[in-house]
C-alpha cells in the first residue's frame, strides 16, 4: 500500500521512454551508478539466468524525462514486451531519486500467476532494497532477488512436499511426546516410592512404640514432721522392674 502511494504521488518524473532497441547489456547504467565490478558481475548473472531459465531482468539506471507512474509503467510494459518473449521484469531507477525503484514485469507467466501474490512479492523486495546500508537502494540485491522470484514463480509447483513435511512433523511430535511421557512416568514412580517409604517408616515407628516396655520409678513418700504446714516431703526413688 505504501509503495503504491509512493508510486502515485512521488514517482513523477521517472520515465518516458521512446521505443528503443533491446539493450546489449542487461544492466544499462550510463551514469556509472554501480561500481564496475558489481555491474559486470550482475550482468553476467542476469545473462546466465536468461540462457538457463525462461526469465530475463533488465536494469535501467538512467536519468529519464518526467512522467506519471501510470505512464511510466505503460511505457516500460511496451518496452518489455518488445524486448523479450520470455518472462521479464524491468527495474527502472533514476540515480538520486528517493523513491524505490520501479518494477514492471510481464510475460507468459502473468497469465497464470496470482497478481496480488506478485504485487506483494515486489513490494517486499522494493522495501528490503531500501533498507540497505547505502544511501541508495541496493540495486544489486534487488535485481538478483527479483530474478529468483521470477524463476520461482514461473516454475511454481504445488507444494506436494508440504504434506510429507507435515507428516514428518507429526511423527516427531509423537516421539517428543512419548519421550516426555517416559520422563513423567519415572518421576511419578519415584515420587510414589518415596511416599510409600515415608508411610512405611511412620507405621513401623508406630508399631515399635506400641510394643515398647516402659520402666517407671516406684516412689515412696515418707512423712516429715510439720509437713502439712510448711510443705515439702522426702521421697525415695527406686528403679525396679514393675511388680507382677
Amino acid at each position: 500500500m505504501r509503495i503504491s502511494l509512493i508510486f502515485f504521488t512521488l514517482l513523477m518524473g521517472l520515465l518516458s521512454l521512446p521505443a528503443r532497441e533491446r539493450p546489449l547489456s542487461f544492466v544499462s547504467d550510463p551514469s556509472f551508478m554501480l561500481p564496475e565490478e558489481t555491474r559486470e558481475s550482475l550482468d553476467l548473472f542476469l545473462r546466465t539466468r536468461s540462457h538457463k531459465t525462461q526469465s530475463e531482468i533488465f536494469l535501467l539506471l538512467e536519468p529519464l524525462p518526467e512522467a506519471t507512474a501510470d505512464e511510466s509503467k505503460a511505457i516500460l510494459k511496451d518496452l518489455g514486451h518488445s524486448w523479450s518473449e520470455k518472462n521479464w521484469a524491468i527495474i527502472a531507477y533514476r540515480p538520486g531519486q528517493i523513491n524505490p525503484p520501479l518494477i514492471v514485469a510481464g510475460g507468459p507467466l502473468f497469465k497464470e500467476v496470482n497478481p496480488s501474490a506478485w504485487e506483494k512479492e515486489i513490494t517486499t523486495l522494493q522495501d528490503l532494497s531500501l533498507q540497505s546500508w547505502q544511501n541508495t537502494p541496493d540495486i544489486d540485491f534487488l535485481a538478483r532477488k527479483l530474478s529468483d522470484s521470477l524463476v520461482f514463480f514461473s516454475q511454481f509447483k504445488s507444494a506436494t512436499i508440504q504434506s510429507l513435511t507435515k507428516n514428518r512433523n507429526e511423527e516427531f511430535r509423537k516421539k517428543y511426546r512419548s519421550h516426555k511421557s517416559k520422563k513423567a512416568l519415572i518421576l511419578t514412580i519415584s515420587t510414589l516410592s518415596l511416599l510409600a517409604l515415608g508411610l512405611l517408616c511412620f507405621l513401623s515407628r508406630k508399631a515399635y512404640l506400641a510394643k515398647r516396655k516402659m520402666f517407671f520409678p516406684e516412689t515412696n513418700w515418707t512423712s516429715r514432721l510439720g509437713a502439712p504446714h510448711s510443705g515439702g516431703s522426702a521421697a525415695a526413688q527406686r528403679f525396679t522392674p514393675p511388680s507382677e
Binding site: 514463480f153 514461473s154 511454481f156 507444494a159 508440504q162 513435511t165 507435515k166 512433523n169
Partner: peptide, 10 residues
C-alpha cells in the same frame, strides 16, 4: 524440483 515451495513449519 525448481519452483517447489516447502511450507514449514505448518
Amino acid at each position: 524440483i525448481a519452483g517447489t515451495y516447502w511450507h514449514w513449519p505448518p
